[in-house]
Structure formats: structure tokens, C-alpha cells
Design a protein around this nucleic acid. Structure first.
Lengths: 110, 110
DNA sequence: TCCATATTTCATGTTTAATGGAAATAAAAT
DNA sequence: ATTTTATTTCCATTAAACATGAAATATGGA
């Protein structure tokens, strides 16, 4: 990931509602959620949610498909992992013994 | 990490100059860099850098110690890993087979 | 003590982003 | 065809963040 895309991604996540929406979709997993379901779960007005979903989408953090009159959204984990890779790049200047303890702490809590 | 601290951390990083500064310090490693060295390396005015360092510091992403008339800054990797843990929390709803491919892609490039 | 260097703080004008109401589009049901 | 439901777009107002010049603080040297 290049810097400008990393900035877009970070800006998209650095927002109260959008962080909630993204994490909601992360937890929903591959089934995703319809916009209306998200709005109800998080108590957000539909236009506010729509604006924020558009922003998340431009940042590549979510993707969507129409399903009848609903639109279903999914978290795009590949973008998240690309961001994490960017943030950790050159984290130890080639000294793996400095880097490994950091990586060890990143663990999926499932 | 709780949500509000995650938001602070993301907001701190979601800024052109601050992302550069943080990554500069990440790459500098445990030796850190004096404020003036950072300013020179990235061509930033001293007061602008100072404001942004203060913000990074409040977000817990850097720490500093005075050294003569300079002040030396260091990246705080523990905060970064805490953020990554927060972003990945419940990423697979307990289904490790969904989660593992994501974790496999996060690798230190050293 | 007085000066030079390193960094921070303050005040301010400008830009940028967020909010929410109202209207518009899109699909399905009657 | 008309209505209902789901979602988006448009727009105006409000609020927040940013960069910058100038002054202040802190340390070390002459």
C-alpha cells in the first residue's frame, strides 16, 4: 500500500461512526449486513450512514452488492491487512529480534 | 485498547505530516530522533512539527526525553500493536479458519 | 550575565469535514 | 399505475482541524 491510500484508510477509520460501522461489518463476517440492518444496530440516521458507507467504500474498507431493494455491505479485510503491513514496514530496520516481539503481540482473539 | 483510545490513535495517524513523523521514528528504531533531526529530515517548520509531536504524544504513539537542549522522540510500538489488536478483534467470529489467512498476510518486511 | 540554539506555546485566519433536513432514485408489492 | 420500503444525493449550517507568524521557555556556552 502506498502512503496516500494508507492516509485515506486511516482517515476513514478515524471517525466515531465509521469505526463502529466497520467493526460491525468485521464481526458480521462473510455474510455482511444490509445498510438498514447496520442503521438499526447502531442507531444511525439513514443519510448519515449512507454518507459514511460511501466514504468507507472509497477507502476500500467495505464493498457492497444490491440485494432486492436492500444493499448489503461487507468488510474488506484485504485493505485492512494492507494497512497493517504499511504501518509495520521497516519497523525494525532489518533487526528481526526487535520486530518479533511486536508481531507476537498481534493475535486474533478468537 | 478501548474504542476512544483507538479513535485517538487513528486520528493521530490520519494526517500527512504525522504519518510521516511516526514512520520516520519507527524506522529510526530504539535510538529515536531529536525534534530538530525530524524537522530537517522531513522539511517541516519547527512549530508545526512540535504541534504534531504533541498530538502524537497524547495519542501514545511517541514518547520523548530531554537530552541537553534537544528533545529526543521515540515511536511507541506498544500502542501500535494495541491498535492492531483492536482492529482485528472478533475478526472471524470465532472461526479461526477465516482468520488465519488474514494474519498470515501480516508480516514484517525485514 | 548575556547570547545562541532547540523547542514549545499562543493567537488567528483559513480550510475542511460533519450534521441533518428534504428531495430524489431504485426496487418490490398492491 | 400507484404506493411502500430502502437507500442515496443535495444543500446549508455548524463545528473542528490546520498552518503559520510571533512570542515565550529552556538549556548550554561565552
Amino acid at each position: 500500500m502506498e502512503k496516500n491510500r494508507a492516509l485515506d484508510t486511516l482517515s476513514a477509520l478515524a471517525h466515531d461512526i465509521r469505526l463502529d460501522v466497520f467493526r460491525c461489518l468485521v464481526q458480521a463476517g462473510p455474510e455482511g449486513m444490509a445498510a438498514g440492518e447496520i442503521a438499526q444496530a447502531l442507531q444511525i440516521r439513514p443519510n448519515t450512514l449512507s454518507n459514511n458507507l460511501t466514504l468507507l467504500s472509497h477507502a476500500g474498507l467495505v464493498r457492497s452488492t444490491r440485494e432486492g431493494r436492500s444493499i448489503r455491505y461487507f468488510a474488506e479485510m484485504a485493505t485492512m491487512t494492507a494497512l497493517l503491513g504499511f504501518l509495520l514496514r521497516d519497523c525494525c530496520g532489518g533487526r528481526a529480534e526487535l520486530c518479533q516481539p511486536i508481531l507476537d503481540q498481534i493475535a486474533c482473539e478468537c
